[in-house]
Each structure stands twice: as structure tokens, then as C-alpha cells.
Design a binder for these strands. Sequence first.
RNA 1: GGGAGCGUGGCGCAGUCGGUUAGCGCACUGGGUUGUGGUCCCAGGGGUCGCGGGUUCGAGUCCCGUCGCUCCUCCCA
Length: 418
Amino acid sequence: MAYESVRGMRDILPQDIGYWTLLEDKVREIARRFNYREIRVPLVEHTELFSRGIGEATDVVNKEMYTFPDKKGHSLTLRPEATASVVRAYVEHGLHTVEPFQKLFYIGPMFRYEKPQKGRSRQFHQYGVEAIGSLDPALDVEVINLAWELMDSLGLKGLSLRLNSIGCAADRKQYRQILRDYFAKLIGTMCEDCQRRYEENPLRILDCKNDLCQPHIKDAPGSADHLCKSCADHFAQVENYLKELGLSYEIDSRLVRGLDYYTRTVFELVSVDLGAQDELLGGGRYDGLVEMLGGPPTPGVGFAGGMERLILVLKERMGSLDDRQRLDLFLATLGEEGRSLALDLARDLRRQGLSVDLDYRGRALRKQMAQANQLGARYLLVLGDDETASKKGKLKEMDSGGETEVMLTVEEIERVIE
RNA sequence: GGGAGCGUGGCGCAGUCGGUUAGCGCACUGGGUUGUGGUCCCAGGGGUCGCGGGUUCGAGUCCCGUCGCUCCUCCCA
């Protein structure tokens, strides 16, 4: 093999593109229903945007970013996620001065330097929504509702939504201490990673799946039980609205997210069809992010979903997706005369919106028929000397084999095909 | 980052204790008489057996390294 794609960077071939366009169409359609507008932000940002926005201590920033200097020595980074960029754009363009409440969505590639495996590649694609400018718990629920609607429109059932609240910055600081106190005498018996986490970020201990640690984690105090009055109220209302809308969820007091900007509500949607990467989509509030990135104090909530993962589930549940649209007409040609006529007709019929193709390999009529058949052509027209002379031809309907005699004019051919 | 398994034509696979020209199915190309398809029949093209090194008279088959893929772990979407 002369060249191979870079590790973790995959081609999406025509045979699979149907899943992608289907998914993109659904995202746009559902976003439209909820009145979210599309935003497209650059793939490259100043490194600092992510190190500050996502958090210096996170794995994503620490060891997973594609960071490089440009020719002037500025440190740039291929975006590992889009929330920071969207918020940057919100602040940079003063969107808050025009209309402080913005509902936005995006679709596009992200980059993270990780070990590739099922449901995880280095260039991967996310769709996501961001609702910036309101602390209303009903908005948290709208975002979750949007996610459910999207899954529903794709026919996906049996997914589960995990929900938690990690509180405001002050709550987290306090909760961190509560966890440290709780794990203080247990940590000696727990795994190495947890010992490190104990020092760096005890919240992450809750994520550990090590058998050594599990029993202790099971009984650890949950973050939702240690919220300030306002965060507790907020969380209670989120739950109320969810129940009101009949959206199922389960509280997971061990749910903590890996990016530092999250506050209060956090959630993720998981699927049993995926292996180790079972998280289909995840998100939550980020009430401090806008201010951290230089804007006015502004709350926000959103989520991002992985498209590769979703497509894995779709393939599992839907099986093959034949999105190939049928060709309207194949022009089989014999000789130079027929070919000229075909080129003329093809141009005119294409201008009328019909999909038309013809032979470019000088193949025998038999083979051209076979090709038309393989392309799923609805109609076929043989163009040779007879047709050129008489200006008449037989439009053959491929499925039935029936033929209709037509004058070789755009109007008449179009009339039969339509 | 740690662990395990796997790497043979475009795709899916076979290849027996290492042995002579590396096979099969699908796909692809041509043909089955001169202007008609999806079935069928025949023929053909295409592989330095991931790459590099080693053992051996001889390696796709054994050993080492390397790259890649898959799964787990980790992390997250």
C-alpha cells in the first residue's frame, strides 16, 4: 500500500454516506423545530481557548490535543470540541449585545489524539447544541428534550439518560472536600489512578470502574445531596420539568463530566449497543464559561453527540441503508452518431432536472444494458443510426421491460418519464 | 498510556507437521455472432501473503522488531 490514511483518520465512503446525510438532515430538522440556528466555527483555534475553557487539568487538554505552532510561533490547536469555540464566537461578535439569549447548533469534525478503537477515532464528528443566556431549568430540559426527539426521529429506543447535578463552583469546592474526607481512610486500598485523582480532582474517582474501588465508590456521598439552596432548587425543577414532559431519566450521583466548565446539571445518554464507548451524547450547564472567556456573566447549557457512535448504533438497529437514488434515464449508444445525439439529449434532460447517464467506456450494448440495470436506471433509451435518422426511439422501462415509442425531444421524453 | 487478539488480490475467507507455479467466493473486465439488461456458461486481469530483520536447503506458515486494525482498560462524544 503506497499511502494509508493517518492513524485514527478515516474515510467515509459513498456506501456509508447515506447514514451521514440522514443524521445531518435529522439534526437540522430537529434543531429547526426547537428554533436553534446553525453556527460554523473554525477547526483551528488559539490553544489557550481550550486550555482555559476546558481546563488545564483535564485529559482532553493534557494529552489529547493536536497542538502545533504556526509560522509565527503562535500555538494553535485543532478543536477537540466545539463549545469553547461557540462561546468564543458569542463573545467575540457581541452576540450578547444584539440578543443575549442565543440558541445555536453545529455539526462538524473534532480532533483528539487518543488510541483509536470502536466508536473512537482521532478525527471524529459531533453535532451539538448550545443555549446561551438563560438559567431557566426549563431550558436544561429543552436541551435534553431535543436530544430525545433526535433519537426518536432516528427510531432509537431503549437508550437511557443519566442525570446529575454537580452544583455551582462553590458547591464543587465544598463537595471536593466532602469526598476527600470520605475517601481519606479508604484511599490506601484503592487503585493507583484513584490515589492520583484524590490529590488532583477527587470528583474523578467516582468515574473509576476498578473492582478495588467500586465498593467504596458505591457508598460515596453524591454531589446532588450537597448542593446549595439555589442549585438544589434548580435541580429539583429540572426533575419536575422532565417528569412533566414524560422524559425518562435516572439519577446517577456518580456522574461527573470530564471537562471543567460544567456546572449544575450534567447528563449523558448511553446505548447498550456500543462497547466501551457507550456514551452517545453528553452535556450539561456551563454557567461560568462565557465570563471566563471574556464575556459578561452568562449561563449556558448544551450537549454534544458523537456521530460515529450514533451511526454504529443505527447500523446495528437499521441494518443496511440503501440511500442510492435511482437514475432516471440511461442512454445506451451505438456509434458516433448515436453518441452525439446522446450528449445533446443528456445536456437538455439534465437541465430539466432529470438524472441522466451514458456510456463512457465504449462498451457493447449488452454491457451498457447491464450497467443501466446495475445503476438502477428507471428508463433506457438506445441511440444508434436508426434513431439518429428517424428522430424516434423506444423508451424502455427497465422494471417491466415495456417500451414506449417517443419522438426524441426533451418534452416527449420528459413526459413519459414523469 | 497499560493489557489481549489479529494482519493472505477491492471485500469476505482457505492455505494441514514450514516444502515446489498462493487458492476460493463476491466484485471487476471480456466473450456466449452481427442493436438490448437483471439468471446462466466460459475466459481473463489483479496479491513483493502489512513492513523489516532472523532461523532454515526452503517461510504465507517458526522467532524478533515495527506499523496498522479489533477488543478491554483509560478517556470522552
